[in-house]
């Protein structure tokens, strides 16, 4: 049987699953972020946190809450890493080195989940559960909260209610609701499903197994399924094991593989649907989600082609590009996973990206460079796409000579400056990061390959960190003070600087009057806008990286 049919079959199953559930999830998310009622368990949480969930925060206060909450998270997790040897269930592992503990703390709080270490060989169960998994939940919730605040900013207007002037909601209410109503229940169900299909969930340490050939192998047990569920659902990506979702204990079958891909795509698409409901125009959410789907489809198509056609001498001689891929999944499922994990901010892998074909690796990198908007991180995907929507109406406004507006909100000088700074932040960080990596001896010291592939290894690492993806190309050793510090800084600023611009813009939109749609208003729910927005994403963002891509994957493809 041709390999094309199963490849198309899994894509069809995924699309069907998403089409059936995204509208329901989207409606539930919209209700979560607009409801006035608090659940009993939420009220208890607010009392413990000593916060008033009904206080409508000014964007400044909302942003400071995001920063304060994240700072505490980093310091706590850093402490966990440095004191690991004294913690119960540490499995005898020593403390993480200082820069490694810091990198890990920043990585998990920023929803990046970049791992310089092998999970099963460095982290005990308590740190996995109380440190890393907790951050998997709350870092995802922070991103979703910011996206909800942005949607609120667009939905509100001080003209209708003067009390909303610059106010975008309550961060702690958004955070607690996201965790308790959305992430926990779905993760629980997904974890049970994974256990049912063979993922492990225990408190075992190492087991030495004797193989049929007389050798021995050490297998590490642990609370894997529970971490796996939120790892995918929250677009986190940090695996229990070093090989992540390529490990049979994390991702046992092609069915669990499909569910893992579904989980990482479901909430980002549902957030787009929820956006339409929050701004009271469902078509807006469908348009934004449509662009996400279009960009993801392009990436899936290109990556699947690259891996299945297997261009290059070595794959042609071997009869397929199976290096670094699980035989359980094959080329097509590996390509679908790679496109989804880099289109979202997940960063989990079921195949080693260093072994993707040169064009395949280039697509994965470009996917991240787009800012992970196809469909992006659980919250960052939506606000990233909405920022580009503002750029699109601005450019369209320039073309027809009208004042640009989005959902009735005028895009003035200050607004477009904020959006421009947002769009520029990640490229600036990424390009400074790769410049630093090639300028110091410590950068190339960790790479495995020379030439353009070695450059790609470094480029992938800084791209992954600056975009808060967390997937690793492999082939590069980053557990050094230089790489841990550089990538930690990229993750930190790559997460919070854009978030601040998003919240500032949300506040401005909430304060602005709503302009009535006129003859010069660009409809933002029609196919024309979908095409324009897709073009803006590819041209404005994508072109920034073309020169640096030429130095790595493009040169490698041509050689």
């Amino acid at each position: 049987m041709s390999e094309v049919l199963p490849a198309l079959g899994q894509i069809a199953a995924l699309v069907l699953l998403l089409a059936l559930t995204v509208p329901l999830l989207g409606r539930f998310l919209a209700h979560t972020y607009t409801s006035d009622k608090h659940l009993a368990v939420e009220r208890v949480t607010y009392r413990v946190l000593r916060v008033d969930p009904d206080a409508d925060q000014h964007w400044r206060s909302y942003a400071m809450s995001v920063l304060g909450f994240s700072l505490v998270g980093i310091l706590l997790l850093f402490g966990f890493g440095r004191l690991q040897q004294h913690l119960p269930l540490s499995l005898g592992f020593p403390a993480l080195p200082t820069e490694g503990a810091w990198n890990t703390a920043v990585s998990f709080v920023t929803n990046t989940n970049w791992q310089w270490y092998s999970g099963e060989a460095a982290i005990g169960h308590l740190m996995q559960m109380s440190g890393l998994t907790v951050q998997n939940f709350v870092s995802a919730a922070v991103g979703m909260a910011v996206a909800a605040a942005f949607a609120r900013g667009l939905a509100r207007t001080s003209q209708e209610d003067s009390r909303v002037d610059g106010r975008v909601g309550n961060f702690f209410a958004d955070l607690v609701r996201t965790v308790l109503r959305v992430l926990l229940p779905i993760s629980l169900a997904a974890a049970f499903l994974f256990i049912l299909f063979g993922a492990i969930q225990n408190f075992s340490g190492d087991h030495v197994m004797h193989t049929l050939t007389g050798g021995s192998q050490t297998l590490t047990g642990g609370p894997v399924a529970s971490q796996e569920a939120i790892k995918q659902l929250g677009t986190n990506g940090g695996g229990f094991y070093n090989v992540n979702s390529a490990h049979p204990f994390e991702n046992p079958t092609p069915f669990t593989d499909l569910i893992q891909i579904y989980l990482e795509l479901a909430l980002p698409f549902a957030m787009a649907w929820a956006f339409g409901l929050i701004v009271k125009d469902k078509r807006q959410g469908i348009a934004v989600g449509g662009v996400m789907a279009l960009l993801l489809s392009i990436a899936v198509g290109l990556l699947t082609w690259a891996e299945m056609a297997a261009p290059g001498t070595a794959p042609q001689l071997a009869g397929g590009a199976m290096e670094g891929k699980e035989t359980r999944f094959g080329e097509a499922a590996s390509a679908l996973f790679a496109a989804s994990t880099t289109g979202t901010s997940t960063g989990a892998v079921n195949a080693m990206h260093d072994s993707l074909t040169a064009p395949g690796g280039g697509v994965a990198m470009f996917n991240m460079m787009l800012g992970e908007i196809a469909p992006g991180g659980v919250g960052s995907g939506l606000y990233g796409m909405l920022m580009l929507a503002v750029v699109t109406v601005f450019l369209a406004g320039l073309m027809v000579g009208r004042t640009p507006e989005y959902l009735g909100k005028k895009i003035g000088q200050r607004e477009i400056v904020m959006v421009a700074l947002y769009v520029l932040t990640t490229p600036v960080l990424l390009l400074i990061g790769i410049a630093a990596a090639v300028s110091f001896d410590d950068g190339p010291a960790g790479i495995l390959n020379s030439g353009p592939h070695g450059f790609s290894e470094m480029l992938y690492a800084v791209t992954s960190a600056a975009n808060n993806n967390g997937s690793a190309f492999g082939g590069i050793t980053t557990g050094t003070p230089f790489w841990n510090t550089l990538l930690g800084l990229l993750m930190l600023f790559g997460r919070f600087v854009p978030m601040i611009f998003v919240l500032a813009l949300a506040g401005r939109f909430a304060s602005a009057k709503r302009l009535p749609a006129g003859a010069g208003t660009l409809p933002t729910h029609k196919p024309l806008f979908v095409v324009l927005l897709t073009g803006v994403a590819l041209v404005v963002v994508g072109l920034t990286y073309v020169p640096v891509l030429f130095l790595g994957p493009v040169v490698e493809s041509l050689s």
């Binding site: 400044r60 942003a63 310091l75 850093f78 904020m418 930190l492 919070f496 600087v497 601040i500 500032a504």
Partner: peptide, 30 residues
């Protein structure tokens, strides 16, 4: 000692981010 350095790096980064919030919140000049 190195632990303190990394804690200080983190605090400095967040102070910078808080300053950015403050800068963006400044009222516009007409």
């Amino acid at each position: 000692m190195t632990d303190v350095v990394y804690v200080l790096i983190t605090l400095a980064a967040f102070v910078g981010l808080a300053l950015l919030v403050g800068a963006l919140d400044r009222p516009e000049k007409d």
